[in-house]
Amino acid sequence: MVDGDQGLTVEGLTKRFGTVTAVDTLSFRVSRGQILALLGPNGAGKTTTLLCLAGLLRPDAGRIAWDGRVLGPTRGRDVALIPETPEVYDMLTVWEHLVFVARSCRLRDGWEEEAARLVDRLGIADQRDTLGEALSKGMRQKLLLACGVLAATPVLLLDEPMIGLDPRGQRELRDLLVELRRREVAIMVSTHLLEYMEGLCDGLLIIKRGRALAAGPIQDLRREHGGRSLEDVFLEMTES
């Protein structure tokens, strides 16, 4: 953890849908170069939290800041979200998606090499000229991942990124996230795959009914619960 206002700071985030409070005064921090796992049972408010952070939902209350700078309505420029349902343009090829991201995000010259390396690494280089409509769910996910990384936002949010990826893709994703951590990107991953995240993330945030149940480094949490596995800890906290 980095002290001060470095990284993504979320304070008192609240989102209601009518009478239902989906996210309830949630506060946490994701430092530069940190991977935070967002865990919770179904309907806990994970996706809603990510959508609020990405600027796709308007929170009812709370403050979202990057390096101490409050992120306003256009925070989509600072926060890239890879959604659970990978939505791509049916009528753009893989490469054209990357061209559009590069131009619309005003990337400086040299992005082509980076984009080529990304598609190669994620195993979609031979799909370069394939239209979005012909891509499988896993391929779409990889494409969105490539777009999200290429956009070079300081914050990357991933919602259930492993669903749809084959074992090779899951390993590449893990390696890529480690790389991005080295680049000091703040990463937040919402998932149900506890074992996958255990060896990867630096910290975790467990939520239920929109409220934080636990937050902090995994080892600290396990130690507090007598050294039991993350799965046991998670089940104990969310089912109590």
Partner: peptide, 26 residues
């Protein structure tokens, strides 16, 4: 590996003209 030195960065110089080109390209 994705070497950091080649990491693309967001340029602030290209304004509305570049944005319109991106939208037209799309």
């Amino acid at each position: 590996m994705i070497p950091s030195p080649t990491l693309p960065t967001r340029g602030e110089g290209k304004a509305a003209g570049g944005d319109l080109k991106a939208l037209a390209y799309l």
